[in-house]
Simulated assay, not measured.
Amino acid sequence: MVRAGRSTGSPLAAAREAADSDGLEHLARVGLIAYGLVHVLVAWLALQLAWGGGGESADQSGAMATLAESSFGKPLLWILAVGLIALAVWQAAEVLRWRHGWSASGKTRTTALRRSGRALVKAVIYVALAVLAIRYATGSATSSSGSQQQTTAGVFSWPAGQWLVGAAGLVLIGVGAWHVRKGFNKHFLKEIDTTDCSRGAVRLVTRLGQVGFPGKGIALAGVGALLIWAAVTFDPSKARGLDGALRTILDLPFGQILLTLVAVGIAAFGAFCFVRARYPERT
């Protein structure tokens, strides 16, 4: 994890100091493991879907439901929630860390805004997953597919809502393409410090990233495509989230094979998160 320079005397400095604490760093590592576990469970559900044994939805909701149904699931869900919240706080601290560059010029400002935006998006995702884990731990969760459709229907009622849903779909497709590109050009290696890694560890991290990022990217692009379809048809029922995207892949020619490959990719991304928790981020 990154250690920002410490200072005192202001709420901003206090927030940075709290975010740099060893306790939060360890919790953030737990959060990365939790994030990886969610992806591994989604991959398992996707494999079950591909080969006829599907039960739970093949998405984050199904992963949480799978945990909730196990004998040790609810305590584990609380641990996941705490770790994910710590990850969100860590990403919020990254926004603060790059805040000084917002008023700069040229490349420095561009870098600061890009990294701040990326950290903010990650923080929102981690908070959403933490809330989902808490809802399953307390037994108050509902179907993620139904929630996605209700949200889409609500956005349709806004001015230019149809365009907003379509734009969200395009953004997800873009994020998916970015994940695929990141896997192929191995850009993820620039984000973690592997200086002290053995050759075998570097090879493992590289292979997991090369498989994992494209697999996740394809899944995200599928979700985006369904949102665009919902926008074009003005039908919120078409917005079926990750589970719907994976089922759409299954319906394609050679769908079982394609879905299996995507599931392997998602599992590899989960394993990458496990390994990622071991290494600090580059400054």
Rank of each mutant, 00 (worst) to 15 (best):
residue 140 S to L: 15
residue 85 I to C: 06
residue 104 A to L: 05
residue 279 Y to Q: 02
residue 250 L to Q: 11
residue 269 F to A: 07
residue 20 D to V: 04
residue 119 A to P: 01
residue 88 A to I: 05
residue 70 S to I: 02
residue 99 R to G: 04
residue 93 A to N: 08
residue 223 V to Y: 11
residue 276 R to Q: 14
residue 160 A to P: 07
residue 133 A to W: 02
residue 96 L to K: 00
residue 222 G to P: 05
residue 89 V to S: 06
residue 180 V to E: 00
residue 2 V to C: 05
residue 21 S to D: 10
residue 267 A to L: 07
residue 82 V to F: 05
residue 63 A to M: 01
residue 251 D to T: 11
residue 187 H to K: 15
residue 17 E to L: 12
residue 241 G to H: 12
residue 113 L to C: 03
residue 244 G to T: 08
residue 220 L to E: 02
residue 80 L to P: 05
residue 249 I to Q: 04
residue 53 G to N: 13
residue 34 A to D: 03
residue 244 G to H: 12
residue 128 A to E: 06
residue 55 G to V: 13
residue 254 F to M: 14
residue 148 Q to A: 15
residue 254 F to E: 08
residue 164 L to I: 12
residue 66 T to E: 12
residue 51 W to A: 00
residue 203 R to D: 12
residue 175 V to R: 12
residue 64 M to I: 06
residue 220 L to G: 02
residue 189 L to V: 10
residue 53 G to Y: 13
residue 83 G to D: 04
residue 134 I to R: 05
residue 56 E to N: 12
residue 245 A to W: 01
residue 209 G to Q: 04
residue 163 W to L: 14
residue 99 R to N: 06
residue 129 L to C: 02
residue 229 W to M: 11
residue 41 L to P: 02
residue 101 G to L: 00
residue 219 A to T: 06
residue 274 F to A: 05
residue 245 A to K: 02
residue 151 T to W: 14
residue 275 V to A: 15
residue 197 C to Q: 15
residue 172 L to V: 05
residue 275 V to H: 09
residue 24 L to R: 00
residue 218 I to L: 14
residue 251 D to C: 08
residue 114 R to M: 07
residue 33 I to E: 06
residue 174 G to P: 06
residue 110 T to P: 01
residue 86 A to K: 07
residue 220 L to F: 10
